[in-house]
Nucleic acid binder design. Structure first.
Length: 494
RNA sequence: GGGCCGUUAGCUCAAUUGGCAGAGCAAGUGACUCUUAAUCACUAGGUUGGAGGUUCGAUUCCUCCACGGCUCACCA
């Protein structure tokens, strides 16, 4: 459909300009979207390969390269043009000289826009300014871009656009690309370290008939043929423990969980969790292993053990502090040991700290809430908070000297909960009682099939979950989980 | 869900005690055979997020809505 110049909106004008060039290319017999263009190496590979060579060395024996990439800048200079060809990671300058090209190739070059993909071939040399460049002899359009990219210098700044059109963010903001490169490296490092420690990676159901292993509202879906409501998992825990029953002694799963709760700078409805289960381990051993695993990843990915995050310097060097929950409350508040004894005194302490809905909470929940209100935000360097109330820990084994307290820890870094682990309860009768108590308290279902598995014998086991997105936040100095996830959940436009 | 803040050209940003909405990049035309945020000249580009209201006049003030950010609540 032809539109009149007057009625055209600005973007549409820009698109129309590009479409006109698209048509021009076709008229010249150039396919703007050809099938293939085989490159010998990427732009950044070529760059690192020839970067060390001087102008003289290149001149003596000029290497001919064949590269594909996106056109990111053109500096026209009459019958000569300089251009930047990018592979996303790095770029190399193109030197395009009218006299060195077929006339048709020069005309093709004139129909290019910033953002187009093109393939080039030619010898590598250095310009007088010393810039490594390809003297283009052949030039092919590989994909014509119909819309303009964000500005080359400032990139894309609008936070909403950056999340909605992540490809533009990645293209134009190198620091954003770096976040996700670090994410990839960190996850790969975690996998390698677990495998080196004898763990095997497994996959367990994401769609579960009874969502268990955590307390959170699940997403519901429906299987038509079975006519069965299924829940997206809130944790893989109960399936991983079935595998320990089945004789896999060290298993891990590094994948998505789904929780139908609020969205915040620390919560995304789908998030990546590492869970691992280790037969014959207990929570003490898990703390040692967690220190080793995370500090190893931090060092491998950042090159050191100190990380700048949210205005703090976080020191990951070992050993990390281990503090009982009760002691953490006492250390980081004005409360005394007496304030934590008995329902009445704890309620008073909670009221003084503005804890909401106090009467709905169990004693154990109240204690955990006191911790959250006092010490938690101050746990900047890695700190294990140990020994949780039994009432809020249905899968953890009690401490030998105190049945109301369990062998459980959470790891806090930068004031965030990063990991949660315990010596797994393996007494099936006790497990059934705990799940029934939990179901009665909070609603929910008892996973009898899980208890059945445990009745066949679960060895002493340590199990842990680590929030990967939050770890990435720490590694990349991001204050919001949205900036550590490529496509975070957003409300649909319009 | 509550409170506060934001939304101006494709992108990055200005501006108005309420009085013709402006720049850089990108785009178009022209000049230019070593530039690199190339340069120079000219041109075009706007329903100031949307809908109402107040006003002679609203981009600016008010109300509602949409989306986003921060924060509290909810929630591990």
């Amino acid at each position: 459909m032809e539109t009149k110049d007057e009625s055209q909106q600005p973007v549409e004008q820009l698109i129309a300009n590009r479409r006109a060039k698209l048509d021009a290319l076709r008229e010249m017999g150039q396919d703007p979207y050809p099938r293939r263009f085989r490159v010998e190496r990427s732009v950044s590979e070529a760059r690192s390969l020839y970067e060390g060579l001087s102008a003289e060395e290149l001149e003596k024996d000029p290497p001919v390269v064949r590269l594909g990439g996106r056109l990111r800048a053109v500096r026209g200079h009459g019958k000569v043009s300089f251009a930047d060809l990018s592979d996303g990671l790095g770029q190399i300058q193109l030197y395009v000289k009218k006299n060195d090209l077929d006339e048709s190739a020069w005309l093709v070059f004139k129909q290019l826009d910033l953002g187009d993909f093109l393939g080039v071939e030619g010898p590598v040399f250095r310009t007088r300014a010393g810039e490594l460049s390809v003297a283009v002899k052949e030039l092919t359009v590989l994909s014509k871009a119909l819309r303009p990219l964000p500005e080359k210098y400032h990139g894309l700044a609008d936070r909403e656009a950056r999340a909605r059109q992540r490809y533009l963010d990645l293209l134009s903001n190198p620091e954003s690309r770096e976040v996700f490169e670090i994410r990839s490296k960190a996850i790969s490092s975690i996998r390698r370290r677990l495998e080196a420690a004898g763990f095997i990676e497994v996959e367990t159901p994401m769609m579960q008939p009874i969502p268990g292993g955590a307390t959170a509202r699940p997403f519901v879906t429906h299987h038509n043929t079975l006519d069965l409501d299924l829940y997206l998992r809130i944790a893989p825990e109960l399936f991983l423990k079935r595998l320990i029953v089945g004789g896999f002694e060290r298993v891990f799963e590094l994948n998505r969980n789904f929780r139908n709760e609020g969205i915040s700078t620390r919560h995304n409805p789908e998030f990546t969790m590492l869970e691992f289960y280790w037969a014959y381990a207990d929570y003490e051993l898990l703390m040692d292993f967690t220190e080793e695993l995370i500090s190893g990843v931090v060092e491998e990915v950042t090159g050191g053990l100190e990380v700048e995050w949210g205005g703090h310097t976080i020191d990951f060097s070992r050993p990390w502090r281990r503090l009982k929950m009760r002691d953490a409350i006492l250390e980081y508040s004005d409360l005394t040991p007496d304030d934590l004894v008995g329902r009445e005194r704890m309620e008073k302490a909670a009221r003084d700290l503005d804890v909401q809905r106090i009467d709905e909470r169990s004693d154990g929940n109240l204690l955990a809430e006191l911790y959250e209100m006092t010490a938690e935000p101050l746990m900047i360097n890695p700190t294990f908070i140990m020994d949780f109330p039994r009432q809020i820990s249905p899968f953890a084994k009690s401490c030998p000297d105190d049945p109301e307290t369990v062998e459980r820890f959470e790891l806090f870094i930068g004031g965030m909960e990063l990991a949660n682990a315990f010596t797994e309860l393996n007494d099936p009768d006790e497990q059934r009682r705990r799940l029934e108590f939990q179901a009665a308290e909070q609603g929910g279902m008892v996973d009898e099939d899980f208890v059945l598995a445990m009745e066949h014998g679960l060895p002493p086991t340590g199990g842990e979950g680590i929030g990967i997105d939050r770890l990435i936040m720490l590694l990349t100095n991001q204050s919001s989980i949205r900036d550590a996830i490529l496509f975070p959940q957003l409300r649909p436009r319009e």
